[in-house]
Design a protein around this nucleic acid. Structure first.
Lengths: 365, 365
DNA sequence: CTGTTAGCGCATTCAC
DNA sequence: GTGAATGCGCTAACAG
């Protein structure tokens, strides 16, 4: 098994210096764009460089400067539209600051995230954006200890003392569900891909850091505020699977005292929920009102158009990168939480509670 | 304006060696996991390393090995679902091979792509995946000359002599449009975000490399094969903007001899087209049949469900990474084009040509 | 303004 | 099996 062959040797500064008939340091200065040099020598060096096809070795430069001009980004999954947009926000701001972005997917696995962070530390990234899947932060502390600023994205981590960029998930959810209660709904269900018991998983205590859990809390608060008894809570945990969400809603809506309003805490839950309602031939919002968390390009393509809670995803990523850039440039401001505003986008999937609850046709009938 | 402060000094191998009371080379051997060492010293070194909190400096290592264990990826826009999925495919395969992925967005600008590639060369990435926006390949040739293998993704570049991973856009489009002709449609339009005149833009000749142009060609071939005269071609170039696509289709469908079938060459065109048809209250497929290029999570959520041409996006990315890994490991196989299969996914938006063409209500009426 | 010299942290000879 | 010495390509003093 032959080892990966080493890459070909490339043209270096000494090569250029020789070719230009100048000292190594002189060539380095003009090629590196620092110090000073006469216009004459500069031209000769540049000519020699062009002739030999010289190109900077950023690795060698990084070794000295200690800066790699690289940001590490850990998200659950770039394929997820939310993270794709967030990553775009990060890269845009990063690019403007001359930083590259290295991407890692954690798939919501704490261990994967940790090893990714470890790799990033070893690779000496200049900063780290993490949408945490792990509930502890030792690995992030290590990064900070190594001089790498860390910004949390989308999810907070209590007690981590890190810059954090989030939205008020709880408040946004509460506001959304309050639309339901104000419209007279009392049977309000929530469909979420959140795990029913966070503590049963690898997650540590204090799992209220998770967005969907926060949204669930907001849902509960809205009900409570409306005087709807705790026993009337209708919660369906579906796992991160569209077909499961569909099944859950199918079952949920087959009950005689089925809900008249549905709040979905995430995109997958929303997709599965709409699948089910379509299968049931449910009239929206006549039979049931729906509000989804997170806007989507298709939200205006379904009929009725879907009312949603939207968040400024790209801005979240951009702000995270922005904070990193500032810290890289020496800012020592106390880490804080940045909460960006969400917006409720009313469209057509919400209406008053129906006077009487029509039984819904079972699917496949 | 203070310069970015240098990062703190980190624990190095000499530090560990001193602390463990061994020679530098010995410490390096056990920490680097090469050469041989006695179990006893190994333990002492490891203990010292743990105690001091040593962590490898991948930059220094790269400087010697010449390998950065990094892949550069240039796509138009990660926010685009297609590229997001492709990037995921790349990162998955890359991660398995111990490679990291650096991401750059070209926004379809050749210049942006070129500078990104240049940066990647300077940073000594081990391989490059590029979804080319530029029509020439000098910059890619430079990478190859520097010993960096390059794989083209999604779009071919004639004469570049590079590994290429694509689908048969022309054939897939032709097959899709042939469904229309076989169903008796003769007024078949295509909606595309492709530029009407490639040569008018920054693009060089031979712009038939572009996927949408290829799909357009497939459309034409299908019409010709069905004996539909060239003059009956109905092509709408809309630019990469959903609202423009909507307007174009609104106008298109207001004609008395409007088309009875619509083929959209890309996601944005599809979204805008459906916007328009929904606004027009068009009955699909009674009034007009629709086939879109590229599947989407919402394709089964609209009514009727949208028939599409789907391509194995993630696999495309995965294969690109796979080829790179092989080349990094020394493969010198002749570069070739890998064409992955597409699939026509019939759903509910396609039907026979209507007997008579019902006039469509203007929007806003 | 220019050239000489000394490292950055690690892998790698080569003697011991 | 171990340790001292050398160099990867570049930047940063420091003299000249």
């Amino acid at each position: 098994m032959p080892n990966p062959p080493p890459p070909p040797r490339r043209v270096t500064i000494p090569d250029v210096a020789r070719h230009a008939g100048v000292g190594q340091a002189t060539a380095a200065r003009v090629l590196g764009g620092y110090g000073s040099s006469s216009a004459a020598t500069r031209e000769r060096v540049l000519a020699a460089a062009a002739e030999l096809g010289y190109s900077t070795n950023a690795v060698a430069r990084s070794m000295i400067s200690g800066r790699t001009h690289t940001l590490g980004v850990v998200v659950a999954d770039v394929e997820n539209a939310y993270f794709a947009r967030a990553v775009r926000g990060v890269t845009d701001v990063a690019a403007k600051a001359g930083l590259h972005v290295v991407l890692a997917n954690s798939d919501e696995k704490g261990e994967t995230e940790k090893s990714a962070v470890q790799m990033f530390i070893e690779r000496r990234v200049d900063g780290l954006v993490v949408a945490p899947a792990a509930t502890d932060h030792e690995h992030l502390d290590k990064a900070v200890a190594a001089g790498i600023p860390v910004v949390l994205l989308d999810r907070a981590l209590s007690g981590a003392g890190l810059d954090t960029v989030v939205v008020d998930n709880r408040g946004a959810a509460k506001a959304a569900v309050t639309r339901f209660t104000e419209a007279g709904h009392t049977r309000i269900a929530v469909v979420t891909s959140a795990s029913p018991d966070e503590n049963a998983t690898q997650l540590a205590p204090g799992a209220d850091i998770w967005t969907t859990t926060e949204r669930l809390t907001g849902y509960r608060q809205a009900l409570r505020a409306a005087g709807i008894p705790r026993g009337a809570e209708l919660i369906r945990h579906t796992g991160y699977d569209r077909t499961w969400a569909r099944s859950a809603v199918l079952e949920l809506m087959s009950s005689p005292d089925r809900p008249t309003a549905l709040f979905t805490t995430d995109n997958v839950a929303t997709l599965g929920t709409l699948d089910a309602l379509l299968d049931l031939d449910a009239h929206i919002p006549g039979d049931v009102s729906v509000i989804g968390f997170d806007d989507a390009e298709w939200a205006t393509l379904v009929r009725p158009r879907l009312s949603v809670v939207s968040q400024p995803v790209q801005e979240l990523g951009g702000l995270a990168a922005d904070i990193l850039v500032r810290r890289i440039n020496g800012s020592t401001a106390r880490p804080r939480r940045h909460t960006l505003p969400t917006a409720y986008v009313p469209r057509e999937s919400t209406g008053p509670a129906p006077a009487r609850v029509r039984p819904l046709r079972a699917p496949g009938e």
